[in-house]
Design a protein around this nucleic acid. Structure first.
Ligand code: MN
Ligand code: MN
Ligand code: ZN
Ligand code: ZN
Lengths: 144, 144
DNA sequence: ATTGGAATTGAGAATCAGTCTCAATTGAAC
DNA sequence: GTTCAATTGAGACTGATTCTCAATTCCAAT
């Protein structure tokens, strides 16, 4: 799956599907949810795989270019990524208390955005929506 | 207006409304649209006002806390701010070609988001939506 | 007005994510 | 096997932002 896509992408650009790149991709695909480059690098190191920080960053850029992963957002602590191969487009709710991220998708929301773009004469390509607030759990905590 | 709010905010926290802070606020309010800290700092310097980079950054944080300005987004080139005092909440379309930012607001979109939050049991507080794509001008350029 | 202390300032050091450099290594194609 | 471009890793570098700290400013109580 992801492996195929990546190696094909690289071949087309006369680049190589090295063990480092393979290891990095595998670690990304084998874990779920969001991740950041530094944690990924550390996880790779402790697994015994080898890849320098530089290679991790370089590979993340390649994976973005080929569409297997995607930058979710920049925070004060760095960039958050997620892999797109598994799940389709969605948006995020971020709990400001516990940092929990809830993913959601709404067809209506997408349609509505398309309409708005059309009206502006804007050619929409992609978007990201982040709703900040408090998750169920943290709302309860607050009440006590 | 903004001046009042800021000085009141500071007084409540036993902090001071200094000339540096006043100058920075004034420069922000007197220009329209989005801005970034470094450009603001340079603009201040060339106007003959004085304020160090450190003070600019410190003041931006204060202004965020008191709600007069707001972080729009973090980019690879730093943080983009805008002042909230003037215009109400809105979202953004970002042209990937020329970097132009189009602001828009849709009541329907807001309502729809509220509904989605309610269904998830999520207490929404704020949100930001960025649609990336191509503005009218850049669509034309591409065709030629 | 004077004074004492807390808040502020600016210059530059420090931090931190991310990129770049470059010499050594690898790998694919011939 | 030879060749040569692509890749790698260590560490230098960059740029945005924060921190440090001595000097200065402001406020408010005297
Ligand atoms: Mn997600
Ligand atoms: Mn705006
Ligand atoms: Zn929460
Ligand atoms: Zn454009």
């Amino acid at each position: 799956m992801g492996k195929r896509i990546f190696s094909k992408f690289l071949k087309e650009r006369r680049q190589r599907f090295t063990k480092e790149r393979e290891g990095i991709l595998q670690k990304i695909l084998s874990s779920r949810g969001h991740f950041d480059p530094e944690s990924l690098y550390l996880k790779i190191k402790e697994t015994g795989l080898k890849a320098s920080r530089a290679s991790v960053y370089r590979t993340l850029n390649l994976l973005c270019e080929c569409g297997l992963i995607e930058r979710v957002k920049k925070t004060e602590h760095g960039t958050i990524y997620e892999h797109t191969s598994v799940h389709e487009h969605h948006d995020h709710m971020l709990c400001m208390e516990c940092g929990n991220i809830i993913e959601f998708y709404s067809e209506n929301l997408e349609k509505l955005q398309e309409g708005i773009c059309k009206r502006q004469g804007f050619q929409g390509v992609s978007h990201s929506l982040e709703i900040r607030g408090y998750c169920k759990k943290c709302q309860k905590k607050k009440r006590s």
